[in-house]
Design a protein around this nucleic acid. Structure first.
Lengths: 205, 205
DNA sequence: GAGGCCGTAGTCAAGTTTGACTACACCTGT
DNA sequence: ACAGGTGTAGTCAAACTTGACTACGGCCTC
């Protein structure tokens, strides 16, 4: 899974209804173009594709109010919402080393309830630990680690990075259990990481 | 940069002359299909593409000796060797979080000289540290980290992972400086992570 | 000895990603 | 008033990736 669908679905969902350029701006505001494949072409492609698959509803819209060509606005359908939450849960749970997907998941984490988030992250830690031991078994065979030569350093890096990932995840779990942030179903203002409609982007170049 | 070109160039280079299936097998032996995009289609595509670009020389070869369709053998050209070392150096130096590229670089690290490797890895650590401080400056603005809400956790993850990467790199540098492994220009058998011509792959499924 | 399976070697169409490009409207100075 | 810059919105071809598929020979088995 690539991060783009989750990012685009989440961005559209936060606006209720959004056109491509708005999504593109939101994602740039999050720095997503730096840690994921959220580039213009990919964003517009994802929008069209998901509209074709019924995850988004496309409204043809008259020429923009702010210059430029006419634009298409999108809305998330029920099916799209289902897909969104499936992707979000998967992003938080899977323990492979895809930083972009995990980052996207963290960005939308407050759309889930606190208890579920803790459970998903715990599953992530478990997966990471299981994977770690399967790797160390593989690269510490009876004939000793030297048999792998410098190739063993690759495994070493994986293990190191799995450990770091598990440690970070445990820290996040602790913060969340201690009451940090406001999650779904907890009243209060949900934190929205997007740009309001007229607000300018302070981080744009 | 994706890891595939480096992997394919390196694999062909180790054999001197290799056909696609051989490369595919080598990469599977290294587990590369698990941590990179080294899947059949990508491998054959990379071979053809690089042949078209003059990085590889393609020899049309008669029907295979072991059943199956006729095969094409490839050889790395001078231009390809240049590209190979450029990619290898870049893979070891750049500090972005692409595990697949770095893994591929580690796999071929002994094709460089020990002193250069240490220098490249030191550059990697420096880059990581510089990037870390630029991120922490960005997400600890004067109005405090709270302004970012849970989005700050994304930055936190990056920083955590940069720290882990730097720490692992320092460990590797120490092992290499202490004399581990045999590098280019040091005589001795270079460690070859490939399969010899008739050898079967013990890790194939 | 024929049918089926396995290993070898590679192809292909469909989908995705990339980065440069287009097209339009507003603003700004001269 | 109009040339050029800037911001808005999106398109496009080329490249890359994916995973399922083809095609062929040898081997086993009944």
């Amino acid at each position: 899974m690539s991060a783009i669908r989750l990012l685009v679905l989440g961005a559209v969902r936060q606006h209720g209804r959004a056109h491509g350029y708005q999504v593109r701006n939101d994602l740039e505001y999050w720095g997503a173009h730096e840690w994921s494949n959220a580039k213009p072409g990919s964003i517009y492609h994802a929008l069209k594709q998901m509209a074709k698959q019924g995850l988004l509803l496309a409204h043809e819209i008259a020429p923009s109010t702010a210059g430029g060509p006419p634009r298409t606005e999108y809305e998330v359908t029920d099916k799209g919402t289902e897909e969104y939450f499936a992707l979000l849960r998967e992003a938080l749970t899977t323990y492979d080393q895809k930083m972009d997907v995990l980052s996207a998941g963290i960005g939308f984490i407050v759309d889930l309830e606190r208890a579920e988030v803790v459970e998903l992250l715990n599953r992530r830690v478990e997966g990471l630990e299981a994977w770690r031991s399967s790797v160390t078994e593989y690269y510490t065979p009876e004939d000793g680690p030297e048999s792998l030569g410098h190739i063993g350093e690759i495994m070493n890096m994986w293990v190191h990075s799995a450990d770091a990932g598990a440690q970070w995840t445990r820290g996040l779990i602790a913060r969340i259990e201690a009451g940090a942030y406001t999650f779904a179903g907890e009243g209060g203002d949900p934190f929205v990481g997007g740009l309001a409609d007229g607000q300018e982007n302070p981080y744009a170049n």
